[in-house]
Amino acid sequence: GPREVTMKKGDILTLLNSTNKDWWKVEVNDRQGFVPAAYVKKLDSGTGKELVLALYDYQ
């Protein structure tokens, strides 16, 4: 199956793709996968990378 990404509340993840309104593709610890968009919030990183903050645990 697809590689699952797990996250804990407060984690910072790299946002790869947010074109789908329900599932965003993120990368964390060299793993890529989809997380519910409602579970993360975009951060203003000030760099080229888009980052998101995990609002809830997800696994």
Rank of each mutant, 00 (worst) to 15 (best):
A38M: 11
V35M: 02
Y56T: 09
A37F: 03
L13K: 00
L43R: 01
L15C: 04
L51H: 07
S45R: 09
D44R: 09
L43M: 09
M7L: 06
R3H: 14
T19I: 08
G10R: 01
V28P: 01
Y56I: 10
V40A: 01
W23K: 02
R31P: 01
V5Q: 04
D44L: 09
G33C: 11
D57S: 07
W23I: 03
G33Y: 15
G1K: 12
A37K: 05
D22Q: 11
G48K: 09
G46T: 14
S18L: 04
E27S: 09
A54Y: 02
L55H: 03
A37R: 08
L16Y: 03
V52C: 10
K49E: 11
V40T: 03
D11T: 05
G1P: 13
L16M: 06
V40E: 02
Q32I: 15
K42S: 06
Y58M: 02
L15P: 00
K8G: 04
W23S: 02
V28H: 13
G46W: 10
L13R: 00
T47S: 14
V26K: 00
K49R: 12
V28T: 10
A54Q: 01
T19P: 03
N29E: 11
V5F: 15
Y58H: 03
K41L: 13
M7Y: 04
N17K: 06
V40D: 02
D30F: 08
L16I: 14
V35A: 01
D57M: 03
K8T: 07
S45E: 10
T47E: 14
V52H: 02
K41D: 07
K49P: 14
W23T: 02
T19Q: 11
G33D: 05
Y56A: 11
I12V: 11
L43I: 14
L51Y: 13
K21F: 06
Q32C: 11
D22K: 12
R3A: 13
A37G: 03
D22E: 12
V28G: 07
A54E: 01
W23H: 03
S18I: 05
L51R: 07
L13P: 01
D30H: 10
L13T: 01
G46Q: 13
E27D: 05
Y58A: 02
N17Y: 05
S45I: 11
A54F: 03
D44H: 12
V5G: 03
V28R: 09
T47I: 13
P2T: 13
L51E: 09
M7S: 01
I12K: 05
E4N: 13
L15M: 02
K8S: 07
L51W: 08
E4R: 14
E27H: 05
W23R: 02
Y39S: 09
F34T: 04
A37M: 04
E50W: 10
E4T: 15
L15V: 06
E4A: 14
V40M: 05
K9R: 11
G10E: 02
K25V: 14
K42F: 07
L16T: 04
R31F: 10
L16S: 02
P36A: 04
L43A: 03
K8R: 11
S18E: 10
E27Q: 12
V52A: 10
K25E: 14
R3V: 12
K8Y: 08
A54M: 07
K42Q: 07
R31Y: 10
L53A: 05
S45H: 09
Y58K: 01
G1I: 12
V35H: 00
R3Y: 15
G46H: 13
M7A: 01
P36G: 03
L13E: 00
Q59M: 11
N20Q: 08
R3T: 14
L13V: 06
G1V: 12
Q59A: 13
T6C: 12
V28K: 14
R31L: 13
K49G: 08
N20P: 04
D11M: 11
E27L: 10
S18H: 08
K8N: 07
G1A: 12
P2M: 15
L15D: 00
G10I: 01
K21Y: 06
K49H: 10
A38H: 12
Y56F: 14
W24A: 02
V35D: 02
D22V: 13
T14P: 09
T47R: 06
T6P: 05
S45P: 08
K42N: 05
V26I: 08
K42V: 08
P36W: 04
E4W: 15
D11Y: 04
G46M: 12
L51C: 08
L51M: 11
I12Y: 05
L15F: 02
Q59R: 11
Y39V: 05
V26E: 00
L55S: 02
K21N: 10
T6G: 08
T6M: 11
Y39M: 11
E4Y: 15
L15H: 01
T47M: 12
M7V: 06
G10H: 04
G46K: 10
S45F: 11
N20T: 05
Y39I: 07
D30I: 03
G48Q: 09
M7T: 01
N29K: 07
K41E: 11
K42Y: 07
V5S: 03
D57L: 03
G48N: 09
P2E: 12
K8P: 00
